[in-house]
């Protein structure tokens, strides 16, 4: 299968007054055409910053190194002009907070048509027509009328639909969805995911689904990578990873899912602890302080992400759990 996105050795850090914060500590992964890659991790694990780096959306004090190949072409470090030919057109992104991600001062029409005018060179009328069609595809009723409205006239779920429609206008190869349902009500979450699944079927794009919600991953993803303290700790297919997690952290995550029995959950909470300080990462494995299996090797040697079975890899010194 051809990879849409190939990331190697991606490191992202932020310069702060107190020193550099290493948000992403060198990750390798790829996303295949048409597949959904779930990216899981708690806040601060670097899962969003990976994709902000790829999209060139890092905050001013952030910088990324390594290699990101989109359809075989290096896009990391491209100048803004060159990058703009890719983002919004072949690679699009939707964000966590639909309430603030749309410009409140511009009509939905303006915000949608500008994408088509920019990337496809359409006229305003053509662009408006296609935008309305796209709003229908994300199941917004009365799309033609709604197109002329302003974001504040839409509910949160509707705004996220608008965001999705906007992202898909140019038929991207890759859609990056950064916690697309986190800010929404539970019932609305399900609808949005439904819309995403449907559109992926129609358009055949790949999706990078960033979330801390394992339920969403289970429903949507083909493959998963689990992030911890800026590194990938485990990678594999959804089925394998959920059935037989091989990294202690992944195991902890899965045990914390409510459908498991209560005693297990409370036991996990006692191991809980804190994610490490990214300014000053400890030596060796960064999970070791919270790991119930930690042994002498863990503080000394950093475990590397290594394959251990067909299509699976983990960063842990333990041979198996």
């Amino acid at each position: 299968m051809a990879a849409v996105l190939e990331v190697t050795g991606l490191k992202t850090s932020f310069a702060t007054q107190e020193g550099a914060v290493k948000a992403v500590g060198g990750v390798d992964f790829s996303i295949n055409k048409g597949e959904t890659l779930g990216v899981v991790g708690e806040s601060g694990s670097g899962k969003s910053q990976i994709f902000m780096s790829i999209m060139g959306l890092l905050a001013r004090n952030g910088s990324a190194t390594g290699s990101v190949k989109f359809q075989g072409e290096e896009i990391l470090g491209l100048d803004v002009q060159a990058l703009n030919r890719v983002r919004g057109a072949k690679m699009a992104m939707i964000f966590q907070d639909p309430m603030t991600s749309l410009n409140p001062y511009l009509s939905v029409r303006r915000q949608m048509t500008e994408v088509l005018i920019q990337h496809k060179g359409l006229s305003e009328d053509q662009a408006a027509k296609q935008s309305a069609e796209m709003l229908e595809k994300v199941q917004i009723p009365e799309a033609k009328r709604r197109l002329n409205m302003y974001p504040h006239e839409f509910s949160g779920g509707m705004r996220q639909r608008v965001m999705i429609a906007m992202a898909l206008l140019c038929g991207p190869e890759l859609l990056i969805a950064d916690e697309p349902t986190t800010a929404l009500d539970v019932t609305v979450q399900a609808q949005i995911l439904e819309v995403l699944v449907g559109l992926q079927r129609d358009f055949g794009m790949a999706i990078a689904l960033i979330t801390h919600d394992l339920g969403v991953i289970a429903r949507m993803a083909d493959r998963v990578m689990v992030m911890y303290a800026g590194n990938i700790v485990e990678k594999g297919s959804v089925r394998d990873l959920f059935k037989d997690p091989q990294h202690p952290y992944t195991q902890g995550l899965l045990e914390s899912m409510p459908r498991l029995d209560e005693t297990e959950e409370t036991r996990l909470m006692t191991i809980g602890g804190q994610p490490p300080n990214l300014q000053n990462l400890p030596s060796g494995c960064s999970f070791r302080d919270r790991c119930r299996y930690a042994f002498e090797r863990c503080p000394v040697e950093t475990p590397l992400l290594t394959p251990f079975a067909e299509g699976r890899s983990k960063a842990c010194h333990l041979p198996s759990l």
């Binding site: 999209m55 060139g56 959306l57 905050a59 803004v80 002009q81 990058l83 703009n84 030919r85 890719v86 983002r87 919004g88 057109a89 699009a92 992104m93 964000f95 907070d97 603030t100 991600s101 749309l102 410009n103 409140p104 511009l106 303006r110 500008e114 994408v115 920019q118 990337h119 965001m163 906007m166």
Partner: peptide, 22 residues
């Protein structure tokens, strides 16, 4: 720093339009 300016960048709009329009 707002999210909607980030969205505008993510849409691949030229800097000039992001600044002026958004």
């Amino acid at each position: 720093r707002s999210n909607y300016v980030r969205t505008a960048h993510a849409k691949g709009l030229p800097e000039r339009i992001v600044l002026r329009r958004h």
